[in-house]
Simulated assay, not measured.
Amino acid sequence: MMKWYSEVGLTPAAYWTLAWEQAAQSDSRVGNDAEEESYWQQHAPVYDERNPLAPYTAELMGTVIASLRSEDELIEVGPGTGGFTQLLAPHVGKLTVVEPSAAMYEILARSWEQSGLAQNVPEAIRMKWEEASGLVCDVLFSANAFYRIRDMKESLAQMSLTAGRRVYLVQSIGLPFAHPLRAMYGGKQLERSRAQVICDILQEMAVPHQMDTFAVQRKSGAVHDVALISWDT
């Protein structure tokens, strides 16, 4: 995989940043916090009615849950409306979410109260992951929350420092559920899946990790792969 980058003339981390910068030029949501929040104010209330991922990931989440301990403190980065949060909460002692979107967290809290879960609504740290610091947990989990991160290498390093035992990242693969990372460089259009580039950056950082893929059938009936990327810290 690294041969591809050497031929292109970019490191994996540099490729991610370049793709982010070019995406931000065409999609204001990528780099503009106000635009992102405006989008979710409109779409968060109907997000779970359309085609959510969490309810269809039994095999994938079974792998994650099997490693959790009842006394664990878990941080979830970018929980959105809380579909994965509700799956994780019964298996840990404490769950905290890092969620910058007020609109998303409002739906998470409302759904939580309607779910009948015994635990209180998770405490929310209301900022972007890149701006959070000094957090500590046993396990860190995040699903499809990476599209607005400019410096993925720094964010992955921060995840490793935060988690005392293990990090789990979930990333959908394939359109229409996940756009690949695209960048124009050297007169060529380059394209790689986000999941693969995350793994490539971990390799660049010399972080031993694994990526398992699961075929997931969504509410619409469409089947696509979802990657579970994980490593010990």
Rank of each mutant, 00 (worst) to 15 (best):
W4D: 10
W4P: 10
Q22Y: 08
Q25I: 07
S26D: 07
V30T: 14
N32P: 11
N32G: 06
E37V: 07
E37I: 02
E37P: 08
Y39N: 06
V46I: 14
Y47R: 08
D48W: 00
E49I: 00
P52M: 01
L53D: 12
Y56R: 09
T57C: 15
L60E: 06
I65D: 14
I65T: 11
E71A: 13
E71K: 12
L74G: 08
I75F: 10
T81Y: 03
G82R: 02
P90N: 06
G93Q: 00
P100G: 04
S101M: 03
A102D: 14
A102F: 09
M104G: 07
E106Q: 09
I107Y: 09
R110W: 05
S111Y: 06
W112S: 13
E113H: 10
N120D: 14
V121N: 02
L135V: 06
V139I: 15
F141Y: 12
S142Y: 03
N144H: 08
Y147F: 15
D151L: 07
M152R: 00
Q158E: 04
R165L: 07
L169D: 11
I173C: 15
F177C: 13
L181F: 06
R182A: 08
K188M: 12
L190K: 03
E191G: 11
R192M: 12
Q196D: 15
D200M: 01
M205C: 11
V207H: 03
V207C: 11
Q210N: 00
M211Q: 15
T213M: 12
T213K: 10
R218C: 06
K219F: 01
D225F: 01
V226K: 04
W231I: 14
